[in-house]
């Protein structure tokens, strides 16, 4: 723990908080067995590590089962409207660069109704950590297919199977010029925590896709990635500096999250067998909020603090006596 966390938010090394300190007094109301519980526990377990006092942390969510998340944390929080959390968080982070701002969103929230805000937040590189809970279904509205559901998905709204091609959230994020892109799984606490850590350290926008089981409407969606019998073959665990292959007989590539060229990260983002988890890309570039605030300082340095009286008068005035 340093005085300044790597993402630029002031940290306090003397701060000794525990997971319990990040629990709110509200009763958690997800379905028993929902993957959201594990994510909540992992986040509460991770936040003390940041060394940032609770009052400097803000969680902003949209609408969906996943978006109830902020109510269960003892930080500042806002449960907003469907799809708009990245926009709201952008305003907060841009005007308050002293805060650590996190966005909680679902696959419908982030990629359907809020798709526009998501891509622009990533492109702009606002200092937001976006946790996308991907259960490949609409949970809160009781089980319609989502923009990440596999084609042919049978749901209440698609009784003969869904027709549309799903998004690959990480490909979309890379296409939107995201500097930090990662994937993890609800049930792998250790891996989830390591990805949160990497995201928190990244300067600028970070997108973390978390595979999340909705045991009511899409149970077992990620089972092959979790079952001890299949997971080793099904997963590609990415680690910076370690080699991987895109195909069993393919060339060995040393994973470099800092590669400025997103081509390899993009190839990884399209890979399904095996499914990569871990950080695909972590390339820092100046964050929007920092730059915006730097412009304010530059304006003051160049022109001095604004003088309201002079502004109102302008250059063309006349006196009436």
């Amino acid at each position: 723990m340093t005085d300044t966390a790597p993402n630029g938010i002031k940290a306090n090394g003397a701060l000794k908080l525990t997971a319990k300190d990040f629990k709110s007094d509200q009763e958690v109301r997800w379905c028993p067995g929902c993957g959201d519980y594990a994510i909540l526990a992992a986040v509460q377990g991770f936040l003390p590590e940041l060394g940032i006092p609770r009052e400097k942390i803000v969680f902003i969510s949209g609408i969906g089962c996943s978006s109830r998340f902020p109510y269960y944390l003892s930080t500042y929080g806002m449960h907003s409207i469907h799809g708009r959390a990245p926009a709201i968080a952008t305003g907060l982070a841009s005007s308050r660069p002293d805060l650590s701002v996190w966005v909680i969103t679902g696959d419908g929230d982030a990629l359907s109704i809020g798709g526009n805000h998501l891509i622009h937040a990533l492109r702009r590189n606002v200092n937001l950590k976006i946790l996308l809970f991907n259960n490949r279904i609409y949970g809160l509205t009781k089980g319609q297919y989502s923009p990440t559901s596999e084609p042919g998905k049978i749901t209440k709204s698609t009784p003969m199977g869904s027709l549309d091609e799903p998004f690959r959230p990480l490909s979309l994020a890379l296409g939107a010029e995201a500097g930090f892109v990662a994937r993890t799984i609800d049930s792998d606490r250790q891996h989830l925590t390591s990805v949160l850590r990497a995201a928190a350290q990244h300067q600028g926008a970070a997108l973390v896709e978390i595979y999340q089981n909705c045991n009511i409407f899409n149970d077992g969606a990620f089972e092959v990635l979790k079952d001890p019998a299949t997971r080793d073959a099904a997963l590609l665990r990415l680690e910076h500096g370690k080699p991987y292959r895109l195909a069993p007989d393919g060339e060995e590539i040393v994973h470099d999250v800092t590669d400025p060229d997103p081509t390899r990260a993009f190839a990884l983002s399209r890979l399904t067998e095996p499914t990569p988890i871990g950080v695909l890309r972590a390339v820092p570039r100046p964050a929007y909020d920092r730059q915006l605030n730097a412009q304010l300082e530059q304006a003051v340095a160049e022109r001095g603090e604004g003088d309201l009286s002079a502004l109102l008068s302008g250059s063309d005035t006349w006196m009436v006596r």
Partner: peptide
């Protein structure tokens, strides 16, 4: 007028424009 501490944000659409303004208001702007 950035030297008056004015932050202007040209958003991706009107929804994001007001969303960002509301987020800033939450933060005391």
């Amino acid at each position: 007028h950035k030297n008056f501490g004015v932050r202007t944000f040209q958003a991706e659409d009107e929804i994001a424009g007001i969303g960002a303004a509301l987020g800033a208001a939450f933060g005391g702007a």
